[in-house]
Design a binder for these strands. Structure first.
Length: 414
RNA sequence: GCGACCAUCGUAUAACGGUUAUUACUUCGGAUUGUGGUUCCGAAAAUUCGGGUUCGAUUCCCGGUGGCCGCCCCA
């Protein structure tokens, strides 16, 4: 029987060119976060299943996670997100860690769910969180980081839009209309779908009965809320101008306690939510520790890659190999090895092609692999100890002593 | 969980129910025995699986599997 070459459903193989793009995204995340004082952390992909059961609904744990029993009878879950993990880590060492805490991580996460555009079963997600600050300075900082990431990827302010809301706006409205906790959750879920459905008002009435009209009026007048204006002004003052207040942004369930935001692609062909986050001041409560306020966001690799493709912002592939030495006949192979050794000692990444095929063939191979430089090695080179180094994209070549090759390549003199 | 659409060489594609299953790219060999991107010649390579209708199925029907898109969901 033949084995299938397909990867497991919903996960990806990263061929070198895919890996290049993936690394670019992860490295950009890391550099940008570190440039504003965030420290990297990481954790195992395996977590005890209770971590998710305590916080989230049964449906999520039962139907949307990879959960199994280990040989010792423990229930294990492949992390579907990083937030419970980081909350656990912060809670565990709360007294040792100096607040405020600026942390980021770029974990892969698994969710067992139906796939569609921008959503697979395994994805990488930047998680950036700021713990221990409860004021709008922290809200501002985290949105500025989100904005700065987009700019580092090469996006302009016109390419995306930051939509801002605050969970407390809803809380005030619910308090005023005297809505109970269970109904609040349903109404928020309904609000999340408001722009997608056309019977919003009748659905709202089904949930809240005679309070629907009051609620509707309150929702419609929520647009000018002082909580939101403060954050927006603070952002504009700091040069983040593509921010709008949008009281239809809800961000899922009861997890958030204050400011929430979502970043949208403005391109008509990819017009959707890219990522978002917000404030969650009560998350550490389940671990029985003192309250720690927190604000953060998550950004997925698949959606950001779609965004970069849409806006033609992905970098071109560059091979990690600097030069390929094309060995022309067997008698030159040990000489080629010594040349390679010399170049490697000067920090070059060197591939040696021992196929002994014609020079043209070997050069074609180097070009196919996007290796920027080639040098043929045969009898001439053995006698002269000079290499003819060729830059493939320009077609220029130069004859150099072996010891001078690295210097020329690194200083782009060819 | 619900619904639509799709499934042919490695990739992308063509084929009124009857072909030696098309073409391009890629790969391999050669034209070209030490310098690529052009050109020319040649080769290798496919009908997702199981059933049904039919003299005959890549083509029509049913089912499985897989993909893709939308809904639900998105902690």
């Amino acid at each position: 029987m033949k084995l299938s070459t397909d990867s497991y459903k919903g996960v990806r193989d990263f061929y070198p060119r895919d890996k290049f793009v993936h690394d670019y995204i992860l490295n950009t995340w890391a550099h940008t976060c570190e440039s504003v004082g965030y420290e990297p952390y990481a954790a195992s992909i395996l977590e005890p299943a209770e971590l998710y059961k305590s916080k989230t609904s049964d449906e999520i744990v039962n139907e949307q996670t990879y959960t199994f029993e280990d040989r010792g009878g423990r229930e294990v879950t492949l992390r579907p997100e990083m937030t419970p993990t980081v909350a656990r880590m912060v809670a565990r060492q709360q007294r040792e860690l100096g607040f405020p805490l600026r942390w980021y991580s770029t974990p892969n996460c698994f969710r067992y769910e139906r796939m569609q555009r921008g959503r697979l079963r395994e994805f990488w997600q930047l998680n950036a969180d700021l713990f221990g600050l409860s004021g709008i300075e922290a809200d501002t900082e985290i949105i500025m980081l989100a904005h700065s990431l987009m700019k580092t990827f090469g996006a302009t302010d016109a390419d995306f839009e930051i939509r801002l809301n605050d969970r407390r706006v809803f809380d005030h409205i619910f308090d005023e209309a005297d809505i109970d906790a269970g109904t609040r959750k349903s109404v928020i879920s309904l609000l999340d779908r408001r722009t997608k459905i056309d019977n919003f008002e009748s659905e709202l009435a089904a949930l809240t009965g005679d309070k629907a009209t009051i609620l509707l009026n309150l929702f419609n007048s929520a647009a000018s809320n002082v909580l939101l204006e403060d954050v927006r002004e603070s952002l504009i003052k700091r040069g983040v101008e593509n921010v709008v207040i949008d009281t239809s942004i809800t961000r899922g369930f009861d997890y958030y306690t204050g400011m929430i935001f979502e970043v949208f692609d403005t391109a008509p062909e990819n017009n959707r939510s890219l990522f978002g986050g917000g404030r969650y001041d009560n998350l550490l409560e389940v671990f029985g520790v003192e309250k720690v306020s927190a604000v953060g966001f998550g950004m997925g690799d698949v959606t950001i890659k779609d965004f970069l493709e849409t806006h033609d912002l992905l970098p071109e592939y560059v091979s990690p190999t600097d030069i390929m030495l094309c060995v022309l006949d067997e008698s030159a192979s040990s000489f080629a090895d010594s040349v390679a050794q010399t170049l490697r000692e000067q920090d070059m990444n060197v591939a040696v092609n021992y196929s002994y095929k014609k020079a043209g063939n070997q050069i074609k191979m180097a070009d196919k692999k996007s290796i920027p430089f080639v040098a043929c090695i045969g009898k001439q080179e053995m006698e002269s100890n000079l290499l003819t180094v060729k830059h493939l994209s320009s077609g220029e070549q130069k004859e150099l002593p072996v010891e001078a090759v690295a210097d020329h390549i690194f200083t782009q003199e060819i």
